[in-house]
Design a protein around this nucleic acid. Structure first.
Lengths: 221, 221
DNA sequence: ACTAAATACGAATATCGTTCGGATCTTTGG
DNA sequence: CCAAAGATCCGAACGATATTCGTATTTAGT
Protein backbone atom coordinates (compact mmCIF):
# COMPACT_ATOMS: atom_id res chain seq x y z
CA UNK A 1 0.00 0.00 0.00
CA UNK A 2 2.78 2.40 0.74
CA UNK A 3 5.10 0.89 -1.75
CA UNK A 4 4.97 1.68 -5.41
CA UNK A 5 4.84 5.33 -4.57
CA UNK A 6 2.59 6.42 -7.40
CA UNK A 7 -0.78 7.73 -6.42
CA UNK A 8 -3.94 6.04 -7.54
CA UNK A 9 -5.40 8.60 -9.90
CA UNK A 10 -3.97 8.46 -13.37
CA UNK A 11 -0.49 8.36 -14.73
CA UNK A 12 1.74 11.11 -13.46
CA UNK A 13 3.94 10.95 -16.50
CA UNK A 14 7.35 12.49 -16.70
CA UNK A 15 7.79 13.31 -13.04
CA UNK A 16 11.00 11.76 -11.76
CA UNK A 17 10.57 8.22 -10.61
CA UNK A 18 10.36 7.43 -6.91
CA UNK A 19 12.27 4.48 -5.57
CA UNK A 20 10.75 2.08 -3.13
CA UNK A 21 11.99 2.71 0.36
CA UNK A 22 11.43 -0.92 1.29
CA UNK A 23 14.19 -3.47 1.36
CA UNK A 24 11.63 -5.92 0.11
CA UNK A 25 7.86 -6.07 -0.20
CA UNK A 26 5.92 -7.92 2.48
CA UNK A 27 4.56 -11.06 0.89
CA UNK A 28 2.26 -12.27 3.64
CA UNK A 29 -0.70 -10.46 5.14
CA UNK A 30 0.81 -10.69 8.60
CA UNK A 31 3.92 -8.81 7.60
CA UNK A 32 2.02 -6.28 5.50
CA UNK A 33 0.02 -5.36 8.57
CA UNK A 34 3.18 -5.11 10.62
CA UNK A 35 4.74 -2.73 8.15
CA UNK A 36 1.69 -0.51 8.41
CA UNK A 37 1.91 -0.69 12.20
CA UNK A 38 5.49 0.46 12.00
CA UNK A 39 4.52 3.44 9.87
CA UNK A 40 1.68 4.31 12.22
CA UNK A 41 4.04 4.04 15.18
CA UNK A 42 6.49 6.27 13.40
CA UNK A 43 3.79 8.88 12.80
CA UNK A 44 2.64 8.81 16.42
CA UNK A 45 6.16 9.20 17.77
CA UNK A 46 6.78 12.12 15.42
CA UNK A 47 3.66 13.85 16.72
CA UNK A 48 4.67 13.22 20.31
CA UNK A 49 8.38 14.01 20.35
CA UNK A 50 9.34 15.30 16.94
CA UNK A 51 11.97 13.88 14.65
CA UNK A 52 14.62 14.03 17.33
CA UNK A 53 12.57 11.72 19.50
CA UNK A 54 12.31 9.12 16.77
CA UNK A 55 14.46 6.07 17.51
CA UNK A 56 14.36 2.67 15.89
CA UNK A 57 13.81 0.85 19.17
CA UNK A 58 10.87 3.13 19.92
CA UNK A 59 9.32 2.41 16.57
CA UNK A 60 9.69 -1.30 17.26
CA UNK A 61 8.26 -1.08 20.78
CA UNK A 62 5.31 1.09 19.74
CA UNK A 63 4.52 -1.20 16.82
CA UNK A 64 4.98 -4.23 19.10
CA UNK A 65 7.55 -5.87 16.86
CA UNK A 66 11.16 -6.85 17.43
CA UNK A 67 13.84 -4.47 16.28
CA UNK A 68 14.96 -7.08 13.79
CA UNK A 69 11.55 -6.99 12.15
CA UNK A 70 11.94 -3.33 11.39
CA UNK A 71 15.14 -4.04 9.50
CA UNK A 72 13.52 -6.98 7.78
CA UNK A 73 11.69 -4.48 5.56
CA UNK A 74 13.39 -1.13 6.03
CA UNK A 75 17.08 -0.74 5.17
CA UNK A 76 17.50 1.95 7.79
CA UNK A 77 15.69 4.45 9.98
CA UNK A 78 15.53 7.04 7.24
CA UNK A 79 13.62 4.61 5.05
CA UNK A 80 10.82 4.41 7.59
CA UNK A 81 10.38 8.15 7.42
CA UNK A 82 10.66 7.94 3.67
CA UNK A 83 7.84 5.44 3.43
CA UNK A 84 5.70 7.64 5.65
CA UNK A 85 6.48 10.71 3.55
CA UNK A 86 5.49 8.73 0.49
CA UNK A 87 2.22 7.77 2.12
CA UNK A 88 1.64 11.45 2.87
CA UNK A 89 2.31 12.35 -0.74
CA UNK A 90 -0.20 9.79 -1.89
CA UNK A 91 -2.87 11.14 0.44
CA UNK A 92 -2.12 14.64 -0.80
CA UNK A 93 -2.35 13.63 -4.44
CA UNK A 94 -5.53 11.65 -3.92
CA UNK A 95 -7.30 14.45 -2.10
CA UNK A 96 -6.32 16.96 -4.75
CA UNK A 97 -7.44 14.87 -7.70
CA UNK A 98 -10.69 14.09 -5.95
CA UNK A 99 -11.32 17.77 -5.28
CA UNK A 100 -10.23 18.72 -8.78
CA UNK A 101 -12.56 16.30 -10.51
CA UNK A 102 -15.63 16.80 -8.36
CA UNK A 103 -15.63 20.56 -7.89
CA UNK A 104 -16.05 23.04 -10.69
CA UNK A 105 -13.34 25.65 -10.37
CA UNK A 106 -13.88 28.84 -12.30
CA UNK A 107 -10.26 29.92 -12.43
CA UNK A 108 -6.81 28.83 -11.36
CA UNK A 109 -6.99 31.08 -8.31
CA UNK A 110 -9.75 29.01 -6.71
CA UNK A 111 -7.76 25.89 -7.49
CA UNK A 112 -4.68 27.21 -5.74
CA UNK A 113 -6.82 28.10 -2.75
CA UNK A 114 -8.29 24.60 -2.66
CA UNK A 115 -4.87 22.99 -2.79
CA UNK A 116 -3.65 25.16 0.06
CA UNK A 117 -6.72 24.21 2.07
CA UNK A 118 -5.98 20.53 1.58
CA UNK A 119 -2.36 21.00 2.60
CA UNK A 120 -3.39 22.92 5.71
CA UNK A 121 -6.03 20.38 6.62
CA UNK A 122 -3.51 17.57 6.40
CA UNK A 123 -1.44 19.27 9.07
CA UNK A 124 -4.38 18.95 11.41
CA UNK A 125 -5.59 15.48 10.60
CA UNK A 126 -2.87 13.25 9.21
CA UNK A 127 -0.76 11.73 12.01
CA UNK A 128 2.85 12.82 11.87
CA UNK A 129 2.24 15.19 8.99
CA UNK A 130 2.85 18.36 10.94
CA UNK A 131 6.34 17.15 11.71
CA UNK A 132 7.36 15.12 8.68
CA UNK A 133 5.24 16.60 5.90
CA UNK A 134 6.90 15.37 2.72
CA UNK A 135 10.13 14.47 4.44
CA UNK A 136 12.13 17.68 4.76
CA UNK A 137 12.85 17.16 8.44
CA UNK A 138 14.60 13.89 7.70
CA UNK A 139 16.21 14.72 4.37
CA UNK A 140 15.56 17.25 1.61
CA UNK A 141 15.82 14.46 -0.91
CA UNK A 142 13.71 11.89 0.91
CA UNK A 143 11.15 11.38 -1.82
CA UNK A 144 13.58 11.26 -4.70
CA UNK A 145 17.34 11.16 -4.67
CA UNK A 146 17.48 13.37 -7.75
CA UNK A 147 15.07 16.12 -6.72
CA UNK A 148 14.08 18.09 -3.66
CA UNK A 149 10.92 16.92 -1.97
CA UNK A 150 9.17 20.16 -2.85
CA UNK A 151 10.31 19.80 -6.44
CA UNK A 152 8.55 16.43 -6.56
CA UNK A 153 5.42 18.00 -5.12
CA UNK A 154 5.64 20.92 -7.56
CA UNK A 155 6.08 18.50 -10.43
CA UNK A 156 2.94 16.62 -9.52
CA UNK A 157 0.94 19.80 -9.14
CA UNK A 158 2.17 20.98 -12.52
CA UNK A 159 1.05 17.79 -14.21
CA UNK A 160 -2.34 17.95 -12.55
CA UNK A 161 -2.88 21.58 -13.44
CA UNK A 162 -1.77 21.17 -17.01
CA UNK A 163 -4.01 18.17 -17.51
CA UNK A 164 -7.01 19.70 -15.78
CA UNK A 165 -6.91 23.20 -17.23
CA UNK A 166 -5.08 22.56 -20.47
CA UNK A 167 -2.68 25.45 -19.95
CA UNK A 168 0.67 25.60 -21.70
CA UNK A 169 3.32 23.56 -19.95
CA UNK A 170 6.17 26.05 -20.25
CA UNK A 171 9.48 25.98 -18.35
CA UNK A 172 8.34 29.23 -16.80
CA UNK A 173 5.34 27.50 -15.27
CA UNK A 174 7.58 24.85 -13.75
CA UNK A 175 9.88 27.43 -12.19
CA UNK A 176 7.03 29.55 -10.90
CA UNK A 177 5.38 26.54 -9.32
CA UNK A 178 8.62 25.41 -7.74
CA UNK A 179 9.09 28.84 -6.18
CA UNK A 180 5.49 29.07 -5.05
CA UNK A 181 5.62 25.65 -3.42
CA UNK A 182 8.91 26.36 -1.70
CA UNK A 183 7.82 29.73 -0.36
CA UNK A 184 4.32 28.66 0.59
CA UNK A 185 5.63 25.56 2.28
CA UNK A 186 8.05 27.60 4.38
CA UNK A 187 5.46 30.12 5.50
CA UNK A 188 2.87 27.48 6.31
CA UNK A 189 5.49 25.55 8.24
CA UNK A 190 6.01 28.67 10.31
CA UNK A 191 2.26 29.01 10.84
CA UNK A 192 2.11 25.53 12.32
CA UNK A 193 5.20 26.05 14.43
CA UNK A 194 3.54 28.99 16.14
CA UNK A 195 0.16 27.33 16.56
CA UNK A 196 -0.65 23.61 16.47
CA UNK A 197 -3.76 24.42 14.44
CA UNK A 198 -1.94 26.84 12.21
CA UNK A 199 -1.77 30.53 13.12
CA UNK A 200 -4.73 31.91 11.10
CA UNK A 201 -3.02 35.23 10.37
CA UNK A 202 0.07 33.52 8.97
CA UNK A 203 -1.98 31.03 6.99
CA UNK A 204 -3.90 33.91 5.44
CA UNK A 205 -0.67 35.69 4.58
CA UNK A 206 0.70 32.53 3.00
CA UNK A 207 -2.28 32.45 0.69
CA UNK A 208 -1.84 36.11 -0.20
CA UNK A 209 1.83 35.54 -0.89
CA UNK A 210 1.26 32.58 -3.17
CA UNK A 211 -1.66 34.12 -5.00
CA UNK A 212 0.20 37.36 -5.51
CA UNK A 213 3.31 35.71 -6.82
CA UNK A 214 1.52 33.40 -9.22
CA UNK A 215 -0.73 36.22 -10.42
CA UNK A 216 2.22 38.43 -11.27
CA UNK A 217 3.71 35.53 -13.16
CA UNK A 218 0.65 34.69 -15.15
CA UNK A 219 0.09 38.32 -16.01
CA UNK A 220 3.45 38.37 -17.72
CA UNK A 221 3.23 35.22 -19.78
CA UNK B 1 34.03 37.16 20.56
CA UNK B 2 31.31 34.74 19.70
CA UNK B 3 29.76 34.95 23.07
CA UNK B 4 27.48 37.75 24.05
CA UNK B 5 25.69 37.30 20.80
CA UNK B 6 24.75 40.92 20.27
CA UNK B 7 26.17 42.57 17.21
CA UNK B 8 28.41 45.59 17.43
CA UNK B 9 26.20 48.29 16.03
CA UNK B 10 23.83 49.81 18.53
CA UNK B 11 21.30 48.38 20.91
CA UNK B 12 18.90 45.94 19.35
CA UNK B 13 16.28 46.64 21.94
CA UNK B 14 13.28 44.48 22.54
CA UNK B 15 14.30 41.51 20.43
CA UNK B 16 14.29 38.41 22.57
CA UNK B 17 17.56 37.82 24.37
CA UNK B 18 20.04 35.32 23.06
CA UNK B 19 21.64 32.92 25.48
CA UNK B 20 25.32 32.19 25.42
CA UNK B 21 25.98 28.82 23.85
CA UNK B 22 29.16 28.45 25.85
CA UNK B 23 29.39 26.44 29.01
CA UNK B 24 31.82 29.03 30.25
CA UNK B 25 33.83 31.87 28.73
CA UNK B 26 37.47 31.23 27.87
CA UNK B 27 39.53 33.23 30.34
CA UNK B 28 42.97 32.81 28.82
CA UNK B 29 44.14 33.81 25.36
CA UNK B 30 45.17 30.26 24.59
CA UNK B 31 41.71 28.87 25.15
CA UNK B 32 40.01 31.77 23.37
CA UNK B 33 42.03 30.94 20.27
CA UNK B 34 41.16 27.29 20.62
CA UNK B 35 37.46 28.04 20.77
CA UNK B 36 37.78 29.98 17.54
CA UNK B 37 39.68 27.09 15.99
CA UNK B 38 36.85 24.78 16.93
CA UNK B 39 34.32 27.05 15.28
CA UNK B 40 36.46 27.31 12.15
CA UNK B 41 36.84 23.54 12.08
CA UNK B 42 33.09 23.19 12.45
CA UNK B 43 32.52 25.54 9.52
CA UNK B 44 34.99 23.69 7.30
CA UNK B 45 33.49 20.31 8.05
CA UNK B 46 30.01 21.64 7.30
CA UNK B 47 31.19 22.86 3.91
CA UNK B 48 32.84 19.55 3.16
CA UNK B 49 30.29 17.00 4.32
CA UNK B 50 27.19 18.85 5.44
CA UNK B 51 25.57 18.69 8.84
CA UNK B 52 25.35 14.92 8.78
CA UNK B 53 29.11 14.70 8.46
CA UNK B 54 29.64 16.81 11.53
CA UNK B 55 30.92 14.74 14.46
CA UNK B 56 32.47 15.91 17.70
CA UNK B 57 35.62 13.87 17.21
CA UNK B 58 36.08 15.37 13.78
CA UNK B 59 35.73 18.88 15.15
CA UNK B 60 38.37 18.04 17.75
CA UNK B 61 40.76 16.47 15.24
CA UNK B 62 40.38 19.29 12.72
CA UNK B 63 40.90 21.91 15.42
CA UNK B 64 43.80 19.89 16.82
CA UNK B 65 42.40 19.71 20.32
CA UNK B 66 41.36 16.80 22.49
CA UNK B 67 37.73 15.84 22.53
CA UNK B 68 37.61 16.79 26.18
CA UNK B 69 38.62 20.34 25.29
CA UNK B 70 35.56 20.72 23.11
CA UNK B 71 33.34 19.86 26.06
CA UNK B 72 35.33 22.18 28.27
CA UNK B 73 33.54 25.08 26.60
CA UNK B 74 30.60 23.65 24.71
CA UNK B 75 27.89 21.74 26.57
CA UNK B 76 27.18 19.59 23.52
CA UNK B 77 27.58 19.33 19.78
CA UNK B 78 24.57 21.48 19.09
CA UNK B 79 26.15 24.33 21.02
CA UNK B 80 29.09 24.41 18.63
CA UNK B 81 26.73 24.91 15.73
CA UNK B 82 24.85 27.43 17.82
CA UNK B 83 27.96 29.51 18.42
CA UNK B 84 28.76 29.40 14.72
CA UNK B 85 25.23 30.45 13.80
CA UNK B 86 25.58 33.32 16.23
CA UNK B 87 28.84 34.35 14.63
CA UNK B 88 27.06 34.27 11.26
CA UNK B 89 24.30 36.46 12.61
CA UNK B 90 26.84 38.98 13.83
CA UNK B 91 28.56 39.10 10.45
CA UNK B 92 25.18 39.59 8.80
CA UNK B 93 24.21 42.38 11.17
CA UNK B 94 27.55 44.12 10.85
CA UNK B 95 27.54 44.05 7.07
CA UNK B 96 24.00 45.37 6.94
CA UNK B 97 24.58 48.25 9.31
CA UNK B 98 27.76 49.18 7.52
CA UNK B 99 25.95 49.22 4.17
CA UNK B 100 23.01 51.03 5.66
CA UNK B 101 25.05 53.83 7.14
CA UNK B 102 27.46 54.36 4.27
CA UNK B 103 25.17 54.09 1.29
CA UNK B 104 22.36 56.49 0.55
CA UNK B 105 19.26 54.50 -0.22
CA UNK B 106 16.47 56.33 -1.93
CA UNK B 107 13.67 54.00 -0.92
CA UNK B 108 13.04 50.85 1.04
CA UNK B 109 13.10 48.79 -2.15
CA UNK B 110 16.79 49.44 -2.71
CA UNK B 111 17.42 48.59 0.91
CA UNK B 112 15.70 45.24 0.60
CA UNK B 113 17.75 44.54 -2.49
CA UNK B 114 20.96 45.38 -0.67
CA UNK B 115 20.10 43.11 2.24
CA UNK B 116 19.35 40.25 -0.11
CA UNK B 117 22.67 40.83 -1.85
CA UNK B 118 24.50 40.61 1.46
CA UNK B 119 22.69 37.41 2.37
CA UNK B 120 23.49 35.87 -1.00
CA UNK B 121 27.12 36.96 -0.83
CA UNK B 122 27.50 35.33 2.57
CA UNK B 123 26.53 32.01 1.04
CA UNK B 124 29.51 32.30 -1.24
CA UNK B 125 32.13 33.64 1.13
CA UNK B 126 31.44 32.77 4.75
CA UNK B 127 32.71 29.25 5.59
CA UNK B 128 29.91 26.92 6.59
CA UNK B 129 27.21 29.47 5.88
CA UNK B 130 25.72 27.69 2.91
CA UNK B 131 25.01 24.73 5.13
CA UNK B 132 24.31 26.19 8.55
CA UNK B 133 23.10 29.71 7.72
CA UNK B 134 21.46 30.88 10.94
CA UNK B 135 21.12 27.42 12.37
CA UNK B 136 18.01 25.88 10.80
CA UNK B 137 19.77 22.69 9.81
CA UNK B 138 20.66 21.98 13.41
CA UNK B 139 17.58 23.35 15.15
CA UNK B 140 14.86 25.86 14.25
CA UNK B 141 15.37 27.45 17.65
CA UNK B 142 19.15 27.48 17.66
CA UNK B 143 19.56 31.22 18.09
CA UNK B 144 16.90 31.68 20.69
CA UNK B 145 14.91 29.09 22.58
CA UNK B 146 11.84 31.31 22.47
CA UNK B 147 11.83 32.25 18.81
CA UNK B 148 12.54 30.76 15.42
CA UNK B 149 15.90 31.64 13.95
CA UNK B 150 14.24 33.55 11.15
CA UNK B 151 12.10 35.40 13.66
CA UNK B 152 15.28 36.60 15.35
CA UNK B 153 16.66 37.71 12.00
CA UNK B 154 13.37 39.42 11.10
CA UNK B 155 13.36 41.17 14.46
CA UNK B 156 16.82 42.59 13.89
CA UNK B 157 15.95 43.74 10.41
CA UNK B 158 12.83 45.41 11.72
CA UNK B 159 14.77 47.35 14.33
CA UNK B 160 17.35 48.44 11.79
CA UNK B 161 14.77 49.52 9.27
CA UNK B 162 12.66 51.39 11.79
CA UNK B 163 15.69 53.20 13.15
CA UNK B 164 17.15 54.01 9.76
CA UNK B 165 14.03 55.10 7.91
CA UNK B 166 11.89 56.23 10.78
CA UNK B 167 8.88 54.27 9.55
CA UNK B 168 6.05 53.29 11.89
CA UNK B 169 6.83 50.15 13.86
CA UNK B 170 3.43 48.50 13.56
CA UNK B 171 2.57 44.88 14.32
CA UNK B 172 1.75 44.59 10.63
CA UNK B 173 5.33 45.44 9.73
CA UNK B 174 6.62 42.77 12.06
CA UNK B 175 4.39 40.13 10.54
CA UNK B 176 5.15 41.15 6.98
CA UNK B 177 8.87 41.03 7.65
CA UNK B 178 8.60 37.65 9.32
CA UNK B 179 6.79 36.28 6.28
CA UNK B 180 9.18 37.90 3.82
CA UNK B 181 12.21 36.53 5.65
CA UNK B 182 10.76 33.05 5.91
CA UNK B 183 9.72 32.88 2.27
CA UNK B 184 12.84 34.54 0.92
CA UNK B 185 15.04 32.33 3.03
CA UNK B 186 13.36 29.21 1.71
CA UNK B 187 13.62 30.19 -1.93
CA UNK B 188 17.24 31.29 -1.63
CA UNK B 189 18.03 28.06 0.16
CA UNK B 190 16.64 26.26 -2.86
CA UNK B 191 18.75 28.41 -5.19
CA UNK B 192 21.91 27.35 -3.39
CA UNK B 193 20.89 23.74 -3.27
CA UNK B 194 20.64 23.67 -7.05
CA UNK B 195 23.83 25.61 -7.65
CA UNK B 196 26.76 26.15 -5.27
CA UNK B 197 26.93 29.77 -6.40
CA UNK B 198 23.19 30.22 -6.25
CA UNK B 199 21.06 29.52 -9.33
CA UNK B 200 20.75 33.04 -10.83
CA UNK B 201 17.23 32.49 -12.11
CA UNK B 202 15.99 31.39 -8.70
CA UNK B 203 17.83 34.18 -6.91
CA UNK B 204 16.18 36.68 -9.23
CA UNK B 205 12.78 35.15 -8.56
CA UNK B 206 13.40 35.31 -4.83
CA UNK B 207 13.97 39.02 -5.13
CA UNK B 208 10.81 39.47 -7.17
CA UNK B 209 8.84 37.47 -4.66
CA UNK B 210 10.05 39.47 -1.68
CA UNK B 211 9.72 42.83 -3.37
CA UNK B 212 6.27 42.01 -4.61
CA UNK B 213 5.02 40.81 -1.28
CA UNK B 214 6.40 43.74 0.69
CA UNK B 215 5.14 46.20 -1.91
CA UNK B 216 1.60 44.88 -1.69
CA UNK B 217 1.81 45.16 2.05
CA UNK B 218 3.10 48.70 2.12
CA UNK B 219 0.56 49.80 -0.43
CA UNK B 220 -2.20 48.79 1.95
CA UNK B 221 -0.95 50.41 5.12
C1' DA C 1 59.73 30.71 41.70
C1' DC C 2 55.32 29.31 43.82
C1' DT C 3 50.41 28.57 44.17
C1' DA C 4 45.75 28.62 42.66
C1' DA C 5 42.94 28.67 38.92
C1' DA C 6 42.29 27.42 34.30
C1' DT C 7 42.78 24.25 30.87
C1' DA C 8 44.15 19.88 28.41
C1' DC C 9 43.71 15.25 27.91
C1' DG C 10 41.68 10.71 26.47
C1' DA C 11 40.15 6.26 28.31
C1' DA C 12 35.73 4.83 29.88
C1' DT C 13 30.68 4.97 29.61
C1' DA C 14 25.95 5.44 27.56
C1' DT C 15 23.02 5.48 23.78
C1' DC C 16 21.53 4.43 19.38
C1' DG C 17 21.59 2.29 14.69
C1' DT C 18 22.30 -1.94 12.50
C1' DT C 19 23.53 -6.93 11.68
C1' DC C 20 23.13 -11.87 11.76
C1' DG C 21 22.12 -16.69 12.58
C1' DG C 22 18.93 -19.64 14.62
C1' DA C 23 13.81 -20.27 15.86
C1' DT C 24 9.03 -19.95 14.30
C1' DC C 25 5.25 -19.31 11.27
C1' DT C 26 2.91 -19.55 6.29
C1' DT C 27 2.42 -21.19 2.02
C1' DT C 28 2.74 -24.66 -1.42
C1' DG C 29 2.79 -29.13 -3.75
C1' DG C 30 1.52 -33.72 -3.46
C1' DC D 1 -3.50 -33.43 5.71
C1' DC D 2 1.72 -33.46 5.85
C1' DA D 3 6.37 -32.00 4.96
C1' DA D 4 9.62 -29.08 2.58
C1' DA D 5 10.56 -24.39 1.10
C1' DG D 6 10.14 -19.86 1.75
C1' DA D 7 8.98 -15.93 4.61
C1' DT D 8 9.22 -13.81 8.83
C1' DC D 9 10.54 -13.19 13.63
C1' DC D 10 13.55 -12.50 17.23
C1' DG D 11 16.99 -10.16 20.28
C1' DA D 12 21.78 -10.57 21.76
C1' DA D 13 25.92 -8.65 19.92
C1' DC D 14 28.58 -5.17 17.37
C1' DG D 15 30.11 -0.56 15.80
C1' DA D 16 29.82 4.30 15.79
C1' DT D 17 29.05 8.47 18.09
C1' DA D 18 28.14 11.76 22.05
C1' DT D 19 29.49 12.84 26.51
C1' DT D 20 31.77 12.44 31.22
C1' DC D 21 35.30 12.68 34.64
C1' DG D 22 39.59 12.14 37.18
C1' DT D 23 44.27 13.32 36.46
C1' DA D 24 48.13 15.81 34.32
C1' DT D 25 49.71 20.14 32.47
C1' DT D 26 49.86 25.12 31.66
C1' DT D 27 48.96 29.91 32.71
C1' DA D 28 48.51 34.15 35.58
C1' DG D 29 49.23 36.72 39.61
C1' DT D 30 52.40 37.69 43.57
Amino acid sequence: MACRGVSGSGDNGPVTEIRTPLRRLPAQRRSAERVQRMLDACADILDEDGYDGLTTTRIAQRAEVAIGSVYQFFPDKRAVAQALALRNLEVFGDRISRTLTEGAFADWSDTVGAIIDIFVEMHRTVPGFRVLRFGDVADVNLLDSDADNNAVVAGRLRTMIVETFGVKDTPGLATALAIAVEAGDAVLKMAFRRDPDGDPEIVAEAERLIHGYLASHIRES
